[in-house]
Write a protein that binds this DNA or RNA. Structure first.
Length: 835
RNA sequence: GCCGGGGUGGCGGAACUGGUAUACGCGCUGGUCUUAGAAGCCAGUGGUUCACACCAUGCGGGUUCAAUCCCCGCCCCCGGCACCA
């Protein structure tokens, strides 16, 4: 490799040259036959929207530093890249521009791949995958068949979230505050028959395993998933209907208050409502009420300040503990989709029931008494929802409400009036999408056999590429007979293929495992490779996937495990959620016109500068505001290194980082620089590996470069000094090589090194080089800084104290006061306590 | 309401286990080089003050020789969940 010596810093040609070198020599290829410890680092793969944006650059630069750093530390590193290539934007663009989604997608992939290559990321490109290819989605179809056999996937008709703009249903996780996650349209409800994955079967495990992830995942993501799963421990209680055989079952977390249940509230959608009002004079009013509530806008209906309203059904049930006759109401605040859709109303101890009872003059009964107080229903301003002792509760009187929860649950189970149960907020995952550009669901509908799963040997069910797209976005698949008309795999008769496709989140729920054997064509995974590489040691991506993708992937791994595909509980051992890249405090967007285009920045400053700035501007977890003068600063720093190497070109020898010896560093300047060199290695290594604090690691290297500038003239005069300089420069380049790999490689070569810096190990600092002859001790009086003294390293407390007290400014402050105490922290400070 | 995160110079941000608050960078100021400028290099840069010194990490207390850090009580900002029974 010929270094561009004595030239101005031509980042374009340097970077392209080294990218080609790495590529041609397969530097970042890896496989699972290795004696080294493995390390799998992965960034969330992109949707091929057309161009890389600054958020991608930040995400992938973080991942690349980790990958290169771990490689230098001796790990066998898997660092792959691919494309989340099914999805709506391809279809919408295809309709808009009259092209085919496949063509649009693959040309975007080509463009984005070259943009990523231009950034010099250390991917093993042989493992690249695109989820829209049959080579990928055929395995997903196979998983579907296994899930089908196991009952993990099922069909059901239910009201579903419908995005009118995207012409498809959405999973609960894809509805953000009533709006479509993708296009922000208000989501409607539509009754449809859809395919669901039984994620709720895994609710308990998904929740419990979060404990294992606490060490490696951000607390906030763990807590968001806990919230989303929404576990409530309580009981089901059966309330028999008056004058009828049937009953109403409620879910409650407050079975301790059951003696205070004075009426019953049902959701307007509760299936029993029609039966209860049949033939009763209240029927018309109830029907009108139910109709009105059902037709309410979803957002209005779920809003906080919606007034509590209800209507009496005319029917009664019986409290199984008190025998009290309880009127049954329909209430607008009871949710059909949570619990059983029926609530035992305890107005004295639930604020909603309290308000409802006051409004409709329904009876109240206190059953929990706060200690040292006596509640009076007539005087109560609000429900008592805190702890207390049971009253008016038969045999349970006098128990604390916590104890009563257990005793009453025991009683329920003993008497058959109910049972302990756990309720989750999590709903099953609707994976059907009424769109074209997705993986076909491998199922057919046969007139004689009904719903029939495809046979394994018929996979993949190919998504036809010859289709006529509809202007309005409707899927063309139902109108494509070559696809939709098929034969039943069971009876061979005429059948119709499922024309819904799978949610694209299904593809992203297992891609990380496919990378371990991406080109395997006789199975989804190579078991040996999978076992070797998984789990992902470090996963990096945006926090917007805290629930969606990260919850689905966790579930998918557990489901695949139970189908025998893998022996793994959790896919991602450690997670880093990086913040957004903003401009002027706002998210970059075309409509705001505040987009900073990475391609332009690379053309102007080079990939190294763009990478450096993305890592230096802020710690990775935080949002950072793009700054045009900030990137200038990063460019300046790279120029400073370039000029340093240039200026010292006759002085520097090709040596390893930290190669200068104590004998080389005999002069004070030499000693200081070597000391700084080793301190920098220690700090940068700790900052990168322990905390992903790339900004402070870079700051430390900047300090070393500053020190080099100050020391270079003094040290370049003799051989020993030159060895110290050469070593420090080698260290600068080596430490920067994961961050700015191209210039590190270029200058490494220009100094005359034979190998590549990419193959250098991470340098080792030594205790001996960090040791100093003298230490600066801070002297405080009553905790206030009054002076500094220099003492020989390792001086004892007495000597330090003596030196401190004789420091002129300190001595002056001690003149008219009494010294009460002197605190000496050797190596650090002295604090003189006076009065 | 519940859960989680945060509040430090003009700005982005440092400060490891309680021990020099403001590292590093941006911006600004000055010097040097130059015919001049740019770039580079060097230096300065929290506030008040001539200075000694004093005041500063959202606010108010506390513990400690010593608090950005620990404890108690508040305020504000960001994110998630939320009529969840």
């Amino acid at each position: 490799m010929k270094p561009e010596r004595g030239m101005k810093y031509d980042h374009q040609s340097i970077e392209i040259k080294w990218q080609r070198t790495w590529e041609e020599s397969g530097t970042f290829h890896c496989d699972h036959h290795s004696d080294k410890p493995k390390y799998y680092v992965l960034e969330m793969f992109p949707y091929p929207s057309g161009n890389i944006h600054m958020g991608h650059v930040r995400n992938y630069s973080i991942g690349d530093v980790v990958a290169r750093f771990k490689r230098m530390q001796g790990f066998n590193v898997l660092h792959p890249m691919g494309w989340d290539a099914f999805g709506l934007p391809a279809e919408n663009a295809a309709i808009k521009h009259g092209t085919h989604p496949a063509k649009w997608t693959f040309s975007n992939i080509d463009n984005m791949r070259s943009q990523l290559r231009r950034l010099g990321y250390s991917y093993d490109w042989r493992r690249e995958l695109a989820t829209c290819t049959p080579e990928y989605y055929r395995w997903e179809q196979q998983f579907f068949l296994r899930f089908f056999e196991k009952g993990l996937v099922y069909r059901k008709q239910a009201p579903q979230n419908w995005c009118p703009k995207c012409h498809t249903v959405l999973a609960n996780e894809q509805v953000i505050e009533g709006l479509c996650w993708r296009c922000d349209s208000a989501v409607e409800q539509k009754n449809l028959t859809q395919w669901f994955l039984r994620i709720t079967d895994y609710a308990e495990e998904l929740l419990a395993d979060l404990d294992k992830l606490e060490a490696g995942w951000p607390e906030r993501v763990v807590s968001m998933q806990r919230n989303w799963i929404g576990k409530s421990i309580g009981a089901e209680i059966v309330f028999p209907l008056e004058n009828a055989d049937s009953s109403i079952t409620v879910f409650t977390t407050r079975q301790d208050t059951v003696f205070g249940a004075t009426f019953m509230s049902l959701a307007p959608e509760h299936p029993l409502v029609e039966q209860l009002i049949d033939g009763k004079p209240e029927a018309p009013a109830v029907r009108a009420f139910v109709e009105r509530i059902r037709n309410m806008d979803r957002i209005v209906r779920q809003s906080d300040d919606l007034e509590k309203e209800g209507v009496f059904t005319g029917a009664y049930c019986v409290n199984p503990f008190t025998g009290r006759r309880m009127p049954i109401w329909v209430a607008n605040f009871v949710l059909a989709e949570y619990g059983t859709g029926a609530v035992m109303a305890v107005p004295a101890h639930d604020q909603r029931d309290f308000e409802f009872a006051r409004k409709y003059d329904l009876p109240m009964q206190v059953v929990i008494q706060p200690e040292g107080d006596a509640l009076d229903t007539a005087a109560m301003q609000a429900a008592w929802t805190e702890a207390g002792l049971l009253v008016n509760s038969g045999d349970f009187d006098g128990l604390t409400n916590d104890a009563a929860k257990q005793k009453i649950a025991d009683s329920l189970e003993a008497s058959g009036k109910g049972r302990r149960t756990v309720n989750y907020r999590l709903r099953d995952w609707n994976i059907s999408r009424q769109r074209y550009w997705g993986a076909p669901i491998p199922v057919v509908y046969c007139d004689t056999c009904g719903v029939v799963a495809e046979k394994d040997e018929n996979l993949p069910v190919l998504l036809p590429l010859e289709v006529r797209t509809h202007e309005d976005g409707r899927s063309p698949l139902p109108d494509t007979p070559e696809f939709a008309d098929c034969v039943c795999p069971k009876c061979g008769g005429k059948a119709r293929r499922e024309t819904d496709t799978m949610d694209t989140f299904v593809e992203s729920s297992w891609y990380f495992a496919r990378y371990t054997s991406a080109s395997k064509d006789d199975g989804a995974f190579d078991p040996a490779a999978l076992k070797y590489w998984m789990p992902v040691d470090q996963y990096i991506g945006g926090v917007e996937h805290a629930i969606l993708h990260l919850l689905y992937s966790r579930f998918f791994v557990k489901a695949l495990r139970d189908c025998g595909y893998m022996d793994l509980d959790e896919p991602f051992a450690n997670l880093l959620t990086q913040g957004m890249v903003l401009k002027e405090g706002a998210k970059m967007s075309k409509s705001k016109g505040n987009v900073v285009d990475p391609t332009e920045m690379i053309a102007r400053y080079g990939a190294d500068t763009v990478r450096l700035f993305c890592l230096f501007a802020a710690p990775p977890e935080r949002d950072f505001d793009w700054s045009d003068s900030g990137i200038e600063g990063s460019y300046r720093f790279i120029g400073r290194i370039w000029r340093l190497a240039e200026e010292l070109s006759g002085v520097l020898a090709p040596v390893k980082a930290c190669s200068a010896t104590a004998a080389d560093a005999a002069t004070p300047q030499g000693k200081d620089l070597r000391n700084k060199e080793h301190a920098t290695v220690r700090k940068a290594g700790a900052d990168i590996s322990d905390r992903f604090q790339f900004n402070t690691a870079i700051a430390a290297v900047m300090e070393l470069v500053n020190a080099l500038y100050l020391a270079k003239d003094e040290l370049s005069g003799d051989e020993a000094g030159r060895r110290v300089l050469s070593s420090a420069v080698a260290t600068v380049l080596t430490l920067l090589s994961p961050i700015t790999p191209h210039i590190a490689e270029e200058l490494w070569a220009s100094i005359g090194n034979a190998g590549r810096i990419t193959d250098e190990p991470w340098p080792q600092w030594s205790e001996e080089a960090l040791a100093r002859d003298e230490e600066t001790i801070v002297v405080q009086i009553n905790g206030k800084l009054r002076g500094r003294v220099s003492v020989p390293a390792g001086a004892d407390a007495k000597a330090i104290e003596a030196a401190a007290l004789s420091e002129p400014n300190v001595a002056r402050h001690l003149e008219d006061v009494t010294v009460r105490k002197v605190v000496v922290i050797p190596g650090k400070l002295v604090n003189v306590v006076v009065s």
